[in-house]
Write a protein that binds this DNA or RNA. Structure first.
Lengths: 107, 107
DNA sequence: TCACTAGATTACTTTATGTAACTAAGTTTA
DNA sequence: TAAACTTAGTTACATAAAGTAATCTAGTGA
């Protein structure tokens, strides 16, 4: 399936962003470097899926994983330049959501 | 799960956009009104999933379904104002994809 | 030694997506 | 008049992705 009517670069970007949790993980890391459990509790993702996503995002050079040899060892996740370059996407979605969605209390 | 650390409006927008095919359907409809089979062959989505997505998008008032009483009947899909308001999101993703993804031939 | 923590991984269940065949209503063809 | 074709779907079934909970591995600390 998938006729090549649509630009392949755009399709790659869309398939990345339409993977559940990807956008939220990046959004969360825009706040700064964070540890596994911080991301997990901030966005409410399961450990398994967060682990999968972080590996994907690392492979795509969007997220950087750093092992800090503290005691016990600390593992920090942060955005690469490519990751930070996604900020306008998230901000545009954020603005749109404010303009067009109602909050629970208004429904 | 899903602690409410993140703005619920933003979360709604993200969960809409992270549904597979949603963004591509909207992107396709930015080109103008189209029929079921046109969307289907343009983006290479299965009839079942396209049918599901169009119903979702109609329910969210992003897509408008119109029955044209021609012979045989024609069913046209187009974007509502809310749907068209998603254009900046898609354009931002498009720009980002051009800057940060390589095409197959460059890999 | 036992219990605790962070960062995962594994086994299993549920949900989403994909494939292919089928349907309904009308149309053209033979 | 039936056979075949078209559009816009739907249904049944198969596969893939995501969720849940238990487990693992170092490295503490008591």
């Amino acid at each position: 399936m998938a006729q090549p009517t649509i630009c392949p670069k755009f399709e790659k970007a869309i398939s990345l962003l339409s993977q559940r949790w990807t956008a939220l993980v990046v959004y969360q890391l825009l706040l700064g470097t964070q540890r596994f459990s911080e991301i997990q509790s901030a966005i409410g993702i399961s450990g398994k899926v967060l682990s999968d996503r972080l590996k994907d995002l690392e492979r795509q050079e969007i997220v950087k994983r750093e092992v800090i040899p503290d005691t016990p060892v600390i593992i920090e996740y942060s955005l690469t330049e490519k990751g930070r370059s996604m900020e306008p996407i998230l901000r545009t979605i954020e603005n749109w959501s404010q303009d067009w969605f109602q909050s629970e209390s208004e429904v």
